[in-house]
Design a binder for these strands. Structure first.
Lengths: 182, 182
DNA sequence: CCAACCATGTAAGCTGTTACATGATTGA
DNA sequence: TCAATCATGTAACAGCTTACATGGTTGG
């Protein structure tokens, strides 16, 4: 199973076939911050993807030296399976940035409904996680939290509430877009 | 230099000396999610901390078998240096959860002013990062973002804005607490 | 008595980091 | 021509995950 970095690489070459160097530049210049642009991470990851037949290296027509990576059908399928999987409570609690990455790569799919389904499962998971956080805050074995602890919990809660409003706004935006396609 | 996990362990045994097992239980039951509670991560980390003299293993008075970890003075100093370091733009962009962890362990310090200083450097870093994000969103080489890309950016911006309001609220709370001590 | 939990560890494997290394091309 | 950038890789190392392994204690 590919790593998040590998999925990100597949998604990027689906959007536009690129060289390893070009992929590194994207990580370097975008403010995403999740992935390192170091050659020691990118090139081995690309080699593994070629080895597992999810990517292919092709020379582009002109400028003969240029080797660009393209996604195979298997690569597209793997990405689709990954991005459309429903959002679990654990994923929200442990790695919410990954959920956002999956959301972003719904763009590589042509289906509009899958984005809405995804966002709805996200909303459910965030709501459940928020309930857990609030429960934890009110009864941590009767121990009352210090000011630091209380504020750290409030930070988490405020963050997830922001995620919730964002997701609800996003669902509205995608629903509107869907309607205009009817 | 200790890893984030190692700093977390130091902070936890400063709050209260604990066994390795007890430390694992905290990770298992708290909704933090950043650290795994697997023995394969905790025990080696504790061994390294003892090796670098930041922690010590002591048997508690009664119940002779019980081995509890305590922080050494060097451990306390290392945690303090880590926790009080000012927040950089890179840290905010790459690992904001780590900033929150550092915030939380200000509790282990007795100084109230250091928390406020920390939060102020956090506010500055988040403001700068927000400016970068907004700049990136308006001019990504003239390319207009897709709906997915635009929403992903909005998600990031909304998240950091939530961090900003939280930090400002937190500064107010700590300032009030400081005044009541005068 | 037996399941559940307390309690601690090791080993293999995978990923990613840092650092090193190489060579081509391009613009001032 | 010389610095910067393009472009691709490898090697050593650190850290974590999963899985395995062991044995003690406690409560029903």
């Amino acid at each position: 199973m590919p790593t998040p970095l590998q999925y990100a690489l597949i998604g990027m070459v689906i959007a536009e076939p690129r060289s390893g160097y070009a992929l590194r530049k994207v990580f370097e210049t975008s403010p995403i911050g999740r992935f390192s642009s170091s050659p020691g991470s990118i090139y081995p990851a690309l080699q593994k993807l070629v080895g597992s037949k999810l990517l292919q290296k092709k020379s582009s027509d002109r400028s003969r030296g240029k080797q660009l990576y393209h996604a195979t059908n298997a690569g597209r399928d793997a990405l689709e399976a990954w991005v459309t999987g429903s959002v679990s409570l654990e994923e929200v609690a442990k790695d919410i940035d990954l959920v956002l990455l999956r959301f972003a790569f719904h763009e590589a799919l042509d289906d509009g409904q899958s984005t809405i389904d995804f966002l709805q499962s996200f909303v459910t998971a965030v709501r459940n996680h928020l309930a857990n956080l609030k429960l934890f805050m009110t009864q941590p074995d009767g121990q009352s939290l210090s000011l630091h602890g209380q504020l750290a919990m409030e930070n988490g809660i405020a963050g997830y509430e922001a995620q919730l409003s964002w997701a609800e706004r996003a669902i509205t935006r995608f629903s509107k877009q869907g309607q205009s396609n009817d």
